[in-house]
């Protein structure tokens, strides 16, 4: 049972990451490979606030989400100059730069050793330990994220985003400040990724730079595309598939040592096959 709860927490964290990234990739049509950076900023932010500055869980979460959003504004402003494949490359650049910061700003992040002993969340005196309580907390977080994304996507704001994705020039002619819209959704997405980071850090209680490198960004893109571009349910599916696939492989008798690599391979092959036969992803509504 504990094991199922453990997997549920991980699925939840990836679901939040997938949902938030889909806002940028699926609904705005911008292939962002910077998501691991925000995930990491959130995780490091709350870990440092709680451990070094004695913040409570809730205030640390709020503050580190705000920090992540501030970083999102800065990166988003730079990225707003690009689109298409240059956007992908530039955003990948930010993933690598963020990794460099996590690894080398030793006074703050403890470098390659990472941060140990991140406290478990305590809200109004109740401590969320691993197992059912934490899974419940993450479930609430996923519902919260889903509602935000649902609202963003189905509001007039979301409709403008989809219109920009289809024809940015036309929207500019109508007087929409398209850059502002893209920046806003990017910052919302960044904040939610930071939120996922805070939940992950408190759950695992240990973070190091390797958990937030450029490969994580690549994996998240796969989660979003595989599940389906511009489909919130698709992102939930993609996240579940991502976390549960290694377990499935273990279940059919594959040795533990290669399940991680096997997952990578199946993911890569899946991505290639999707690009060939279904570029919008399994439940997707938009093709790149």
């Amino acid at each position: 049972m504990d094991y199922i709860m453990h997997l549920s927490v991980l699925v939840g964290v990836y679901a939040i990451l997938g949902l938030s990234l889909n806002l940028v990739v699926g609904y705005s049509g911008l292939l962002s490979l910077a998501h691991a950076a925000f995930y990491g900023v959130g995780a490091y932010g709350s870990a440092i606030l709680m451990k070094d500055f004695g913040f409570s869980f809730l205030s640390a979460v709020v503050l580190s989400v705000l920090i992540t959003m501030a970083v999102g504004v800065l990166i988003g402003l730079v990225l707003s100059k690009f689109d298409g494949d240059y956007y992908a490359l530039a955003s990948l650049g930010f993933s690598v730069i963020a990794f460099g910061v996590f690894l080398n700003w030793r006074d703050l992040t403890n470098g390659a050793f990472g941060i140990f002993g991140i406290p478990k969340p305590e809200i109004f005196g109740y401590k969320f330990l691993a197992g059912e309580p934490y899974a419940f907390l993450v479930l609430l977080a996923v519902i919260f994220t889903f509602l935000i994304c649902y609202f963003v996507v189905n509001s007039s704001f979301g409709r403008v985003l989809k219109a920009i994705r289809e024809d940015e020039k036309a929207l500019q002619v109508f007087g929409y400040k398209t850059t502002l819209y893209k920046l806003a959704v990017f910052v919302i997405s960044a904040g939610l990724a930071g939120f996922a980071g805070t939940l992950y850090g408190s759950y695992i209680s240990f973070i190091d730079p390797g958990g937030f490198d450029d490969l994580v960004s690549v994996n998240l893109i796969v989660v979003v595309i595989l599940g389906g571009l511009a489909s919130l349910n698709g992102s939930l599916l993609g996240a579940a598939f991502f976390v549960l696939l290694p377990e499935l492989l273990r279940f059919v008798g594959m040795p533990d040592s290669i399940t991680g690599q096997m997952r990578q391979m199946i993911y890569g092959l899946g991505l290639i096959a999707l690009m060939m036969y279904r570029p919008q992803g399994i439940l997707g509504k938009f093709r790149l």
């Binding site: 298409g84 992908a88 690549v218 990578q264 993911y267 890569g268 991505l271 290639i272 690009m275």
Partner: peptide, 12 residues
């Protein structure tokens, strides 16, 4: 873009 994503798959 599709080719770029497919090449990401090849990379993986």
């Amino acid at each position: 873009m599709i080719l770029l994503v497919a090449s990401l798959g090849v990379f993986t």
